[in-house]
Computed example of a mutant assay.
Amino acid sequence: MHPGLYPLDDDLVRRLIAGQFPHWAGLAVQRFPSGGTVNAMYRLGDDLVVRLPLVPGGAPDISLEQEWLPRLAPRLPTVIPEVLAAGQPAEGYPWPWSVYRWLAGENPEAGALSEPELLAEDLAGFVTAMRSLTFHGAPTAHRGGPLASLDAATRAAIEELRGIPEEAVDCDAVAAVWADALRVPGWNGPPVWLHADLMPGNLLVAAGRLTSVIDFGCMGVGDPACDLFPAWNLLPADARKVFRAALDVDDATWIRGRARTLSQALIALPYYRRTNPTMAHNARHVIRAVLAEG
């Protein structure tokens, strides 16, 4: 997926565990397939999971979660990852890593939700709870700044997609949506706490309902529009309305949220189209959903 991915394997993970947490040394280790882009996940026995960065950019995510997840967990209505152990660089592996309690569930799939409106309410409840947090010293959320900060990368991605006709993206239409959003007023309230990466791969569901939210590596404070991603990357039109109503989103924030979700998809599609089918598939879904909304 990226240049310079660290060559992780089962044996390295076993050595890291044995060297730092010998009480778990006898547990089975197996790579868990996921659509993640900067971290690898390894099952450790039946009840644990090891999360390790694949690239230097993933290391700050691990440290951020180790610091903040224990503080957030008691304040949220949804289960989030529990850091059980903080691993250190060793065995030639250069970055911090973590052991978490394994969380059961499945990633929801756009177009195949069994309870979309109930899931929309669950997601809105989680977002509302995040926004209510008042911790001091909060980090700035990844992508949490002004919409205009994404302009250059978004326009470059649109031009790149013009050169990939097989993707059949209506580049003039998405460029118009993006340009219109840049004219909308920015967020002028205090920054709010955000997960900032509410992709389907970071959600777990059971029987159609939200059970857990994972991967908090982008969390921090910023524009509340950043946590509207599920409206377009997951929810169908009727459930999207439920999500918006439950959060009481004004027009400007809704437009910024749609544009942020679109930007992420436009940038992801040319980058991941041949290396990460999960990310590319979701990017195509977002582009279709945004353009269908008009």
Rank of each mutant, 00 (worst) to 15 (best):
L12F: 08
V13A: 06
L16N: 00
L16W: 04
L16A: 15
A18Q: 12
A25T: 06
F32D: 05
N39E: 01
M41V: 13
D46Y: 01
D47S: 14
P56C: 02
G57W: 03
I62L: 03
L64W: 07
L76P: 05
P77S: 11
E82F: 00
Y93T: 04
Y100W: 06
G105K: 00
E106T: 03
S114H: 02
S114C: 08
E117Q: 14
A120D: 07
D122S: 00
L123T: 03
T128N: 09
F135M: 13
A141M: 11
G144C: 01
G144S: 01
G144E: 09
G145Y: 06
A153K: 13
I158V: 15
A168F: 06
A168K: 14
V174S: 00
A175C: 10
V177T: 06
L182K: 06
P190K: 12
P190N: 08
P191F: 11
W193P: 10
W193C: 12
A196W: 09
D197R: 03
M199E: 11
G201A: 02
L203V: 04
R209D: 04
D227A: 09
F229I: 10
A237I: 05
R240N: 07
R240G: 14
A245H: 10
D248E: 10
V249D: 02
V249R: 04
R256E: 09
R258C: 11
A259D: 03
R260I: 13
A268Y: 04
L269D: 10
L269T: 06
Y271H: 15
Y272H: 12
R274S: 13
A280P: 03
A283L: 05
R284I: 03
